[in-house]
Structures are given as structure tokens and as C-alpha cells.
Design a binder for these strands. Structure first.
Length: 191
DNA sequence: CACGCGATTTGG
DNA sequence: CAAATCGCGTGT
């Protein structure tokens, strides 16, 4: 059985317009290694947060202890805690100095392997929300500021899963009612 | 240093 | 529909 071709996404992939990267992330494969377990899932929902003008983006506050990571290199991980209990997983986009990130809101087809990635078994849990998926994948603030790569036990790969343009839906982002005209930007993407 | 609230989820 | 629960940004 020939192993599936898996191309690990690097900074180049994330160094682009945030909404474009958010769309391209759909259908990409999210890996998380935790102890002897390797989790594999398909990214199915994302949201783009782009520029200091975007009032929905934390980075609209400027460079603060929390937001500085979004000003850093593309391909880094931004994790923050919301409502005192849920960790949100984001990937930084755009060149260093320009604040932007993508929130991973949903993953699907979560499987795991505990034998060095040879056999993946289905894990029948719901991962259709940003707080749910980080709980399942045991992602917390310890990932904040790290590069998304296998050495850090969290990475994204292109395994040539074909997504037709017609499969991608878009609409307003969730939970940002305070963001004035930015509320209506269709920067949420899902399959 | 006190205060208010959020890129959510769950249960009543 | 409201509670849970706490770090961060703001203003004092």
C-alpha cells in the first residue's frame, strides 16, 4: 500500500491574503501529535481576520501582549482563551508586520492512530466548533507563538483533496456583533 | 488595580 | 435563554 502524498504547508502558504488562505485551508489536513497518538482531520470551516482596520480582529487594538503574535511571521500559531474556557486555534497570515490570522472553526473526519501513523481509526466525536476541536485535539495556549510544523506536534498538509469551488460556502463571521460594518464581511468559509 | 466582557458551548 | 469562568484591554 503506497503511502498518501502529504505535502506539509510552510510559511509560503500562509504568506498571502487572509481570505484567500482561509479558502485554501478548506480540505487541507490538520495533524496533531500528542504523546503516542497522531490525530488527523480535514479542515472544514475557517474565518479570516485581517488588518488593524478590521474591528472584529483582536489586532485592531494594535500590538499588545495578546495580539503581537498576529504581527509576526506567517505560519505561526495564535491560540487564545475565550469565555474563560475555550481555546481558539488560529494561523497567522500575511508578511511579518501585517496583523492577520485565520480562525479554524471546524474540522471533520477526525481519526487517530497510536501506532506511528500506520492505521487511522475513526474517532466519532463532534468537532464542528472552534472550542470543540481544540478540546478534542488538546490544543491550549502552550502552542501560542509556535510555528505550525511537525516538530511542534501541530501541522497542516496538502494531501491533494479536491474541493470544487461550488463546495465552498461563505458568509458573515460568527460572534462579532460589536464590529460595526465589519460584521457583514463574508469572511467565514466552510464546506 | 478594579472592572467589564468576549472569534463558545451546554443544558434547562 | 442563561450560566460557566478567566485573561486581556481599558480607564482610574
Amino acid at each position: 500500500m503506497k503511502p498518501k502524498k502529504s505535502i506539509i504547508l510552510t510559511a509560503d502558504f500562509f504568506n498571502n491574503e487572509t481570505h484567500e488562505v482561509a479558502k485554501k485551508l478548506l480540505g487541507k489536513v490538520l495533524y496533531r501529535r500528542e504523546g503516542n497518538k497522531l490525530y488527523r482531520s480535514i479542515i472544514s470551516e475557517t474565518e479570516a481576520y485581517h488588518s488593524m482596520q478590521d474591528l472584529a480582529c483582536h489586532c485592531s487594538k494594535g500590538i499588545t501582549p495578546r495580539t503581537k503574535i498576529m504581527f509576526d511571521q506567517p505560519g505561526h500559531i495564535y491560540v487564545y482563551l475565550i469565555y474563560g474556557m475555550y481555546h481558539m486555534l488560529n494561523f497567522v497570515t500575511m508578511p511579518k508586520g501585517f496583523p492577520a490570522a485565520i480562525l479554524v472553526r471546524g474540522i471533520k473526519d477526525l481519526t487517530y492512530s497510536d501506532d506511528n501513523g500506520q492505521t487511522f481509526k475513526p474517532l466519532n466525536v463532534l468537532t464542528n466548533g472552534p472550542g470543540k476541536l481544540t478540546k478534542q485535539l488538546k490544543i491550549d495556549k502552550s502552542f501560542n507563538g509556535l510555528e505550525v510544523k511537525p516538530e511542534n506536534n501541530l501541522w497542516v498538509a496538502d494531501e491533494n483533496i479536491k474541493i470544487a469551488g461550488s463546495e465552498i460556502k461563505s458568509g458573515p463571521r460568527i460572534g462579532i456583533a460589536y464590529a460595526k460594518e465589519w460584521v457583514y464581511k463574508p469572511w467565514r468559509f466552510w464546506l
